[in-house]
Amino acid sequence: MPLKIRLARGGSKKRPYYQIVVADARSPRDGRFLEKVGAWNPMLDKDNEKRVELNAERIKHWMDNGAQPTDRVLRFLDQAGLANRPTRSNLIKAKPGKKAVERVAERQQKAEELAAAAAEASSAE
């Protein structure tokens, strides 16, 4: 049975509150879980200590038994010093798209044409 340490959403509409739970990977997001091991309240300020609450002892127990944290939970565990999340960098995502590159080239071409026309007009006088 593959286990995940993941978020289960609670709270009302537009007021989210998440429980950090250990669940079977095949069960639905807000469905059956084995144990609640923490909570996350994104409505609180980022520097508030009650924003993320973790039961470190139980999380270590489940991770030792093969439970895999999801990416968001792994961020919380990394901040708490319970796990190591490798840094990621997507260099391709930072590059402009094909259309943006074409627009920049078109603007440069128009600027060069205007500069050439202005130089030609000033030399003709």
Rank of each mutant, 00 (worst) to 15 (best):
S27L: 13
K46V: 07
G11S: 10
Q19N: 12
G10Y: 09
D24W: 02
R29T: 02
L34Y: 04
E57R: 14
E53M: 14
R29L: 07
K36C: 02
R29Y: 01
D24K: 12
P42V: 07
W40F: 14
L44N: 08
I59H: 02
K14R: 15
L44T: 03
E49T: 05
K46F: 04
L44A: 09
K36G: 00
R58W: 00
D30Q: 12
V37N: 11
G38W: 02
N41W: 02
I59T: 00
K14Q: 04
G31D: 03
G31F: 01
K50Q: 11
A39C: 09
K14F: 05
R51V: 03
L34V: 00
E53C: 12
S12H: 11
A25E: 13
Y18D: 08
G38E: 03
K50I: 00
M43K: 13
N55Q: 10
I59Y: 01
S27I: 00
P42C: 07
Y17I: 08
I59V: 02
V52F: 04
R58V: 02
R51C: 07
D24P: 01
E53A: 14
N48T: 02
K60M: 10
K60S: 13
G38S: 10
Y18G: 11
R51K: 15
E53I: 14
I20L: 13
E53Q: 14
G11Y: 02
I59P: 00
L44D: 05
P16F: 04
A23I: 04
I20P: 06
K14A: 11
V22T: 06
A23S: 15
K60H: 12
P16R: 11
D45K: 15
L54W: 04
Y18T: 03
K14D: 06
